[in-house]
């Protein structure tokens, strides 16, 4: 997988400084704020954009883990960190600022630079941050020293507290990582970093020991891989997510060869086949629309699936043909 070319980034930095100068907070172009007026300008900009930013910031829950994400479309497309979703096609929950929960499913991720995407499974219209920036090339204007603010569900969702806002400056701007002194902690991963025009500039990723070491994935990384992420592709080979290995997917069934298919002889409780309603005595006829010939055939085909993969199983029970779909799990 190719990373975003260095040259492109250099050009980008150079052009946007000029193109969106009109929208920039004037204090960004001072070395440091010099007066109370300058400080108030920072405060006013932050407060102007805070409510809207907060509405689109969600907590993401998956198993025991918790992270943050930001909604970027009315239909519920969410940007987050790859290590928060940890894989493609995974089920998770999204919690809005007011505590409303929605089911969600991960789309694609870039495991090399910690970019991830998911989709809320609902027809409702969601509050969102417009990620199409107003500068010419569609990217937000950010330079080292720019004032920024971070949002995130630090340490997990807390309704009384809400998501936590932190103010800081961009300390380093690199190809696939930006650093700020907005101090982050566990649970903030995947949360949004905004500039003082309310533009989304990056997604929180990780921290170092020192308080000023807070790393974020710049939005241009998402832009560079947008279509692949939306299609649900697993990009790269780590370190932020591990590709599931073929042969690790498990249904939780034992079968024997019978006429016309495979008869279920055992159903492992709490495994996906049992949860999907398969019972002892059902006769499996096809897997992902391809007929099942024998026990050997099933075994060979299962070797190609990994945990998290979705399968469609057709079976007959009492003379009726039924089908169920479910995700495989690790044995």
């Amino acid at each position: 997988m190719r990373l975003l070319g260095k040259l492109t980034v250099c050009m980008w930095i150079a052009t946007l400084a000029a193109s969106s100068a009109a929208e920039r907070l004037y204090v960004n172009d001072k070395k440091v704020p010099e007066s109370r007026e300058d400080l108030m300008a920072i405060q006013t900009s932050l407060q102007k954009h805070l409510a809207e930013a907060r509405q689109a910031t969600v907590c993401i829950k998956m198993g025991q883990g918790s992270g943050t994400g930001v909604i970027v479309s009315e239909t519920g497309l969410v940007l987050t960190a790859a290590h928060v979703i940890s894989g493609v096609q995974k089920d998770m929950k999204v919690i809005m600022e007011d505590g409303t929960e929605y089911e969600a499913k991960s789309l694609g991720l870039n495991s090399e630079n910690d970019a991830g995407m998911l989709k809320i499974l609902s027809d409702e219209k969601f509050p969102f941050i417009n990620y199409e920036a107003k500068s010419d090339d569609g990217r937000p204007a950010t330079r080292v020293g720019d004032w920024v603010f971070a949002l995130g569900h630090s340490g997990g969702f807390d309704k009384e507290r809400g998501s936590v806002v932190r103010l800081g400056r961009l300390i380093k701007v690199a190809e696939t990582t930006v650093h700020s002194d907005c101090v982050l902690i566990g649970g903030d991963s995947g949360g949004p970093l905004f500039d003082m025009s309310g533009e989304l500039v990056a997604i929180h990723s990780r921290v170092g020991r020192r308080l000023a070491q807070n790393m974020h994935v710049p939005l241009q990384v998402f832009h560079a891989y947008w279509e692949m992420l939306e299609k649900g592709e697993f990009i790269g080979d780590g370190p932020f997510a591990k590709k599931p290995k073929p042969g690790t997917g498990f249904m939780g069934l034992a079968v024997k060869d019978v006429d016309g298919g495979l008869e279920v002889t055992q159903v492992e409780p709490d495994y996906p086949a049992a949860d999907a309603g398969i019972e002892v005595g059902d006769v499996l006829t096809s897997l992902n629309a391809m007929p099942l010939k024998s026990k050997e055939d099933l075994r060979a085909r299962m070797k190609k699936f990994a945990e998290g993969d979705r399968v469609l199983l057709e079976f007959s029970r009492d003379g009726k043909v039924k089908s169920v779909g479910f995700n495989l799990v690790k044995r």
Binding site: I60, M62, G65, S86, G186, G190, R206, V207, F240
Partner: peptide, 8 residues
Amino acid sequence: TFGLGGLV
């Protein structure tokens, strides 16, 4: 460095 989502 520490990941922040608690999943890594």
